[in-house]
Design a binder for these strands. Structure first.
Lengths: 210, 210
DNA sequence: ATTAACATACAGGCTGCATGTATGCAACAC
DNA sequence: GTGTTGCATACATGCAGCCTGTATGTTAAT
C-alpha cells in the first residue's frame, strides 16, 4: 500500500484530536450548556468518534475538567501579563480587578468558569483549580494591606472569599453586556471601604449618623 | 376487598402526593445532587410511581422549580419574622445578613438555593424568583442610606448585586461548617466600608497612605 | 511486531409521552 | 335521603428514543 497520507507523528495526531475535542466541546457547551450537549454531538463537530473521546478522557466530566483547566491557564496568563501594580494598594487591587474583568470578557469564558464549571465539577474542585493556576493573589494583597495598618482584626481568608465572589458576579454581569463602568465603580467602592482603617470607618459611620 | 379504603378527598390525596414527591426530591437532591438523582429513585422514596410525578410536574426540572420555590418562600417567611431592624443602618444591614445566614443554615437549603438551583434553572430564573419572594430588600436599604449622605454617585443596583453575591458566598461557607463568626466579621467590614461616605473613605485611604 | 490511537458495537439506565385504570364527585331519579 | 350513573381527575403501566460508559475490533506509527 502506498501511503499518501501526511504521516503525522503520534504526538501530533494525539494533540490535534485532543484539541479538536476541546474546541468542539467549548463551542457547544458555551452555546447550549453542559447537560444539554451530548457526546455524540461533540465528536461529530470535532470530526472524530466517541471512541476517541473516551480514549482521551475518562468520562464526559473529565472533558469538562480539561476545558476548565485550559481556560483557567489562559486567564492566569492574561492576568500575569497586565501585572502593572498601581501606585496605592487600592489602585493595585483595582488594576487586578480590571484585568480579571477583561480576561473574563472573552466570549463564553464567564459561562464556563462561573456557571457550568462549578455546576459540573463542584465549587470545591473549582476552588482547588483556582489555587493551582491563579493562586491567592487577592489574599496576598489583603495580607500586605494588613501590615500597613488597615484591616485590624478582620479574618482575611473569609474577606478574600467575599470579595472574590463579588468580582465573579461583576465579571458575569459585564460578560452579559451590563454596563462595565458601573460595576467597576461598585467594585471600587467595595475595595475602598475595605482598605480604609477600621477606626476611620467607625468615625465616618458615626459622623454621618449611620 | 381486603382492606378498607382511606377515602381521602381529591384535594387531600393530591396535596399528600405532591408533598411526598417534593420531600423525597429534596432529600435525594440534597444528598446526591440533581443530575445524579433519577426520577425512578425519587418516586420510589415517595411511594408513588413516575406517572404521579409527571401528572404533577411537567418534567424533572419543573419538580426542581417547585422545590426551589417552596424553599424560597420558607426563607422569606423566616427572614420576615426576624424583622427587628437595628439602630443604625449598618446594624440594620447586619441584622438582615445574620437573619439570612440563619435561614440558609437549614440543612440542605444552601445547596438547593445556591448550587443546584442556579445550575438547573439558570441564574436569571433564580433571580426572578428571588424578586418574587424575597424582594429587593438589600437594594432598598442602599437607597435609604443614599439619602443620608453616604453612597455618593455609586450605582446602587450593581453594588447591591455584589453585596448579595458576598452574602451568598458567606451563607454557603457557614452552611459548610466554616466559622460563622469570621464570616460575619468579614461581612460587617464590607458593609461598614460601603456605608461610610465617599469623602471620608478617601480621606482615610490617603491618611493611611494606601 | 508491538503498542498506541482510534472506530465500532453493545448493554444498561433514564427521560418523556401515550395509553390504560381507578377513585372521588356531582347530579339526577326515586 | 339514597342509590346509581356519567365524568373528570389522579394516578399506573408500557414503550420509544437517547445518552453514557465499556468492551472489543481495527488501523497507523515506531
Amino acid at each position: 500500500m502506498q501511503h499518501e497520507k501526511p504521516s503525522r507523528t503520534q504526538a501530533e495526531r494525539r494533540a490535534e484530536t485532543r484539541r479538536a475535542l476541546l474546541s468542539a466541546a467549548r463551542t457547544l457547551i458555551v452555546e447550549k450548556g453542559y447537560a444539554e450537549t451530548g457526546t455524540p454531538e461533540i465528536v461529530k463537530q470535532a470530526g472524530v468518534t466517541r471512541g476517541a473521546l473516551y480514549h482521551h478522557f475518562s468520562d464526559k466530566a473529565d472533558l469538562m475538567r480539561a476545558l476548565v483547566r485550559q481556560e483557567a491557564e489562559e486567564i492566569a496568563a492574561e492576568i500575569n501579563t497586565d501585572t502593572n501594580t498601581g501606585q496605592t494598594p487600592l489602585e493595585a487591587f483595582m488594576a487586578g480587578a480590571k484585568a480579571y474583568f477583561s480576561a473574563m470578557s472573552i466570549p463564553g469564558r464567564a459561562k464556563i468558569m462561573l456557571l457550568e464549571g462549578p455546576a459540573v465539577l463542584g465549587v470545591s474542585e473549582m476552588a482547588a483549580l483556582d489555587r493551582e493556576t491563579g493562586g491567592a493573589t487577592l489574599l496576598e494583597g489583603l495580607r500586605h494591606a494588613e501590615k500597613h495598618g488597615a484591616l485590624e482584626s478582620v479574618p482575611l481568608e473569609p474577606l478574600a472569599e467575599l470579595l472574590s465572589s463579588s468580582f465573579d458576579r461583576a465579571a458575569l454581569a459585564i460578560a452579559n453586556g451590563e454596563d462595565r463602568g458601573a460595576y467597576e465603580q461598585a467594585t471600587r467602592k467595595l475595595l475602598a471601604g475595605v482598605l480604609s482603617s477600621r477606626s476611620e470607618i467607625s468615625a465616618a459611620v458615626e459622623k454621618n449618623n449611620l
